[in-house]
């Protein structure tokens, strides 16, 4: 499934054109990205939480050469699915 399929689904539910639906999907995703960029979480009831975690520097290896390299500190987004979502995929 892709963004266009999500937009189609919205078209069927709400009286908007495909282009408008596509723009709205983009807009919602953009809002989520803006929040995550600030380091804040996005919590969607019945779906899950997107959280930003900071990772410190750690050692890694170049898998090809085996050479040891430092992995720079970075921020990552993690997703925790809600109980409902977890239950849904196992039913």
């Amino acid at each position: 499934m892709r963004k266009a399929d999500i937009a189609n689904h919205i078209c069927e539910q709400v009286g908007v054109s495909k282009t408008e639906a596509m723009d709205l999907v983009e807009y919602v995703l953009q809002c989520m990205k803006d929040v995550l960029r600030k380091g804040e979480s996005v919590k969607i009831a019945g779906f899950g939480n997107f959280m930003v975690r900071s990772k410190g520097e750690r050692k890694g290896r170049n898998p090809r050469t085996g050479e040891e390299i430092a992995i720079t500190p970075r921020r990552v987004v993690t997703f925790r699915a809600s109980q409902i979502f977890k239950r849904d995929v196992n039913s």
Binding site: M1, Q13, G15, L24, V28, F47, F85
Partner: peptide, 30 residues
Amino acid sequence: RDAEKVVNGIFDSIRDALKRGEKTEIRGFG
């Protein structure tokens, strides 16, 4: 009401796809 349907529609589509075992790839997001 429509705005609710838009936002719910996004997450419901993703959830329903995974229920069917289908993955979702959103360009620019994940």
